[in-house]
């Protein structure tokens, strides 16, 4: 029995197991992207209608706040700064805004460096393997004047789930570089749905399951790439 062949076979086996995990994540994302493309094309206006004006997100004025319960006691807030992406929105509020927003976990900010690192670590977000969160809208229904109930695909921790977000268009303004559009979105998600289960059930029940999100976005028309 050739030891070199055994060694290579064992190494290959372990690599295949792990490579499959990568493939699995890619497959999930590819499936999500395909679903999004279908849903998006169905929800958006017909091709003959003009596309909605697009705004590139201003990272200085766009952030996500998250709230979660600690040790079944206090609710603490953290934020993810410098969101990036685009928002498409009609000035006359005639169509649901469309979002494609990405948050880098390197920008997580709870006010404690150690807590930031804990959250970025493998027990929670595993930022090493899944460095970004992403939300892509797939449709929306009107919930009032300048208010929309937007559905979309949220990808966290390599898992994509459909979620619903309450969106308020907070205003359209004019800045030195051009028009600006502001939005505030709120949502409630369960982190267990994204495969982040650590500390929910087992004592001392470090962090709760339910996460409240408040996302503040400001788009700049001049920031959109041609």
């Amino acid at each position: 029995m050739n030891p070199y062949l055994i060694m290579l076979a064992a190494a290959a086996l372990m690599r295949v197991v792990l490579a499959l995990s990568d493939g699995s994540n890619e497959a999930k994302l590819a499936t999500a992207a395909a679903t999004e493309a279908r849903a998006s094309s169905a929800a958006r206006a017909p091709a003959s209608e003009p596309a909605l004006p697009s705004f590139g997100l201003d990272p200085v004025h766009s952030a996500a706040l998250f709230r979660i319960q600690h040790l079944q006691a206090g609710q603490f807030w953290g934020r993810i700064n410098a969101l990036s992406g685009t928002v498409a929105y009609a000035d006359d509020d005639s169509a649901a805004p469309q979002f494609d927003v990405t948050a880098s976990l390197a920008n997580i900010d709870t006010g404690s460096d150690k807590l930031d690192k804990n959250l970025q670590g493998p027990n929670f977000f595993n930022a090493l393997e899944f460095p970004e969160l992403r939300f892509r809208s797939t449709g929306g229904t009107r919930a009032g004047t300048s208010r929309w109930r937007v559905t979309g695909e949220m990808t966290i921790h390599g898992v994509t789930q459909i979620i619903e977000v309450e969106v308020e268009v907070t205003g359209i303004g004019l800045g030195p570089t051009g028009r600006k559009a502001g939005f505030e979105a709120t949502a409630e998600i369960q982190r267990s749905a994204f495969g982040m289960n650590w500390g929910i059930e087992k004592p001392p029940r470090m962090l709760g399951d339910s996460v409240r999100l408040i996302i503040s976005l400001e788009g700049d028309e001049a920031k959109v790439a041609p």
Partner: peptide, 23 residues
């Protein structure tokens, strides 16, 4: 068998894991 096949397999498994570790 002796220890060589086991040694090779054990090393191979660690080797495979090593090459897929991030960063």
């Amino acid at each position: 068998f002796g220890s060589i096949p086991c040694l090779s397999t054990a090393f191979g498994l660690a080797f495979g894991l090593l090459f897929t570790m991030p960063v």
